[in-house]
Protein backbone atom coordinates (compact mmCIF):
# COMPACT_ATOMS: atom_id res chain seq x y z
CA UNK A 1 0.00 0.00 0.00
CA UNK A 2 1.35 3.40 -0.96
CA UNK A 3 1.85 5.91 1.85
CA UNK A 4 -0.10 8.70 0.13
CA UNK A 5 -3.08 6.36 -0.37
CA UNK A 6 -2.94 5.44 3.34
CA UNK A 7 -2.89 9.15 4.19
CA UNK A 8 -5.94 9.81 2.06
CA UNK A 9 -7.79 6.91 3.65
CA UNK A 10 -6.91 8.14 7.13
CA UNK A 11 -8.05 11.67 6.26
CA UNK A 12 -11.53 10.37 5.48
CA UNK A 13 -11.68 8.09 8.53
CA UNK A 14 -11.68 4.92 6.47
CA UNK A 15 -10.97 1.61 8.15
CA UNK A 16 -8.44 -0.43 6.27
CA UNK A 17 -8.54 -4.21 6.31
CA UNK A 18 -5.71 -6.08 4.64
CA UNK A 19 -6.54 -9.57 5.88
CA UNK A 20 -8.61 -10.57 2.85
CA UNK A 21 -7.52 -11.29 -0.71
CA UNK A 22 -7.19 -7.61 -1.54
CA UNK A 23 -7.01 -4.59 0.74
CA UNK A 24 -10.41 -3.11 1.48
CA UNK A 25 -11.30 0.25 2.93
CA UNK A 26 -14.66 0.94 4.53
CA UNK A 27 -15.87 4.49 4.60
CA UNK A 28 -19.08 6.28 5.55
CA UNK A 29 -21.48 7.40 2.80
CA UNK A 30 -20.76 11.06 3.61
CA UNK A 31 -17.05 10.64 2.90
CA UNK A 32 -17.62 8.48 -0.22
CA UNK A 33 -17.28 11.19 -2.87
CA UNK A 34 -14.52 13.10 -1.07
CA UNK A 35 -12.37 10.01 -0.60
CA UNK A 36 -12.71 9.04 -4.26
CA UNK A 37 -11.83 12.56 -5.39
CA UNK A 38 -8.66 12.36 -3.31
CA UNK A 39 -7.78 8.88 -4.54
CA UNK A 40 -8.35 9.88 -8.17
CA UNK A 41 -6.04 12.85 -7.63
CA UNK A 42 -3.38 10.39 -6.45
CA UNK A 43 -3.65 8.59 -9.80
CA UNK A 44 -5.73 5.58 -8.81
CA UNK A 45 -7.74 4.23 -11.71
CA UNK A 46 -11.31 3.15 -11.68
CA UNK A 47 -11.97 -0.49 -12.43
CA UNK A 48 -15.52 -1.29 -11.43
CA UNK A 49 -18.41 -0.23 -9.26
CA UNK A 50 -20.94 -2.72 -8.03
CA UNK A 51 -22.97 -3.60 -4.97
CA UNK A 52 -23.72 -6.42 -2.58
CA UNK A 53 -27.04 -6.98 -0.91
CA UNK A 54 -26.56 -7.14 2.87
CA UNK A 55 -30.33 -7.69 3.50
CA UNK A 56 -30.81 -4.60 5.68
CA UNK A 57 -28.41 -2.51 3.62
CA UNK A 58 -26.70 -2.33 0.25
CA UNK A 59 -22.93 -2.36 0.29
CA UNK A 60 -21.38 -0.35 -2.54
CA UNK A 61 -18.09 -1.78 -3.74
CA UNK A 62 -15.75 0.27 -5.89
CA UNK A 63 -12.63 -1.43 -7.24
CA UNK A 64 -9.67 0.82 -7.85
CA UNK A 65 -6.28 0.06 -9.34
CA UNK A 66 -3.20 1.53 -7.74
CA UNK A 67 -1.06 -0.13 -10.42
CA UNK A 68 -2.00 -2.44 -13.29
CA UNK A 69 -1.58 -5.44 -11.01
CA UNK A 70 -2.70 -4.10 -7.63
CA UNK A 71 -6.32 -3.64 -6.75
CA UNK A 72 -8.11 -2.15 -3.78
CA UNK A 73 -11.78 -2.06 -2.89
CA UNK A 74 -13.44 0.91 -1.28
CA UNK A 75 -16.78 0.14 0.29
CA UNK A 76 -19.63 1.94 1.91
CA UNK A 77 -23.01 0.89 3.16
CA UNK A 78 -26.45 2.39 2.45
CA UNK A 79 -29.26 1.37 4.77
CA UNK A 80 -32.48 0.18 3.15
CA UNK A 81 -34.49 3.18 4.28
CA UNK A 82 -32.00 5.57 2.72
CA UNK A 83 -30.60 4.09 -0.49
CA UNK A 84 -28.79 7.23 -1.49
CA UNK A 85 -25.16 7.86 -2.30
CA UNK A 86 -23.20 10.67 -3.95
CA UNK A 87 -22.17 10.01 -7.53
CA UNK A 88 -18.62 9.28 -8.65
CA UNK A 89 -19.31 10.01 -12.29
CA UNK A 90 -17.67 13.44 -12.12
CA UNK A 91 -14.50 11.86 -10.74
CA UNK A 92 -14.49 8.71 -12.85
CA UNK A 93 -16.44 9.05 -16.12
CA UNK A 94 -16.96 5.27 -16.56
CA UNK A 95 -18.77 5.15 -13.21
CA UNK A 96 -21.70 6.80 -14.97
CA UNK A 97 -22.75 3.53 -16.56
CA UNK A 98 -21.76 1.47 -13.54
CA UNK A 99 -23.91 3.55 -11.21
CA UNK A 100 -26.85 3.36 -13.57
CA UNK A 101 -26.53 -0.40 -13.42
CA UNK A 102 -26.39 -0.40 -9.62
CA UNK A 103 -29.52 1.75 -9.61
CA UNK A 104 -31.25 -0.53 -12.08
CA UNK A 105 -30.50 -3.77 -10.25
CA UNK A 106 -30.28 -2.67 -6.59
CA UNK A 107 -32.26 0.56 -6.38
CA UNK A 108 -29.51 2.78 -4.99
CA UNK A 109 -30.00 6.34 -6.20
CA UNK A 110 -26.88 8.37 -6.91
CA UNK A 111 -27.14 12.07 -6.16
CA UNK A 112 -25.76 14.39 -8.81
CA UNK A 113 -25.71 11.69 -11.51
CA UNK A 114 -26.41 13.21 -14.95
CA UNK A 115 -28.89 10.53 -16.01
CA UNK A 116 -30.27 8.32 -13.26
CA UNK A 117 -32.41 6.03 -15.40
CA UNK A 118 -32.79 2.31 -16.05
CA UNK A 119 -30.01 0.87 -18.14
CA UNK A 120 -30.45 -2.88 -18.52
CA UNK A 121 -34.09 -3.42 -17.74
CA UNK A 122 -36.89 -1.81 -19.74
CA UNK A 123 -37.68 1.77 -18.80
CA UNK A 124 -41.03 0.79 -17.30
CA UNK A 125 -39.56 -1.86 -14.99
CA UNK A 126 -40.46 -1.52 -11.33
CA UNK A 127 -38.30 -4.16 -9.66
CA UNK A 128 -34.72 -4.29 -8.42
CA UNK A 129 -33.87 -7.89 -9.25
CA UNK A 130 -30.51 -8.31 -7.56
CA UNK A 131 -31.98 -7.61 -4.12
CA UNK A 132 -32.30 -10.85 -2.21
CA UNK A 133 -35.94 -10.04 -1.50
CA UNK A 134 -36.64 -10.40 -5.24
CA UNK A 135 -37.25 -14.06 -5.97
CA UNK A 136 -37.33 -15.67 -9.39
CA UNK A 137 -40.57 -17.30 -10.44
CA UNK A 138 -40.66 -21.06 -10.23
CA UNK A 139 -40.08 -22.76 -13.56
CA UNK A 140 -42.70 -25.30 -14.63
CA UNK A 141 -40.29 -28.24 -14.67
Amino acid sequence: MRADVLDALARHAATLDESGFDPRADVSVDAWAGLHADLAALGLEFSDITALDRIDAVELVCWLLSSPSEQLSVRTSCLNDRLLAPTLSDVYPPAEFGEREVYDLFGVVFEGHPDMSRILQPDDATTFPLRKSFELAETPW
Partner: peptide, 11 residues
Protein backbone atom coordinates in the same frame (compact mmCIF):
# COMPACT_ATOMS: atom_id res chain seq x y z
CA UNK B 1 -20.64 -9.83 -10.97
CA UNK B 2 -18.89 -9.30 -14.27
CA UNK B 3 -16.88 -6.20 -15.02
CA UNK B 4 -17.33 -6.12 -18.75
CA UNK B 5 -14.61 -4.26 -20.67
CA UNK B 6 -17.03 -3.21 -23.40
CA UNK B 7 -19.64 -2.00 -20.94
CA UNK B 8 -17.18 0.64 -19.85
CA UNK B 9 -15.88 1.07 -23.41
CA UNK B 10 -19.41 1.89 -24.48
CA UNK B 11 -19.84 4.34 -21.62
Amino acid sequence: RVRSPIFYGLS
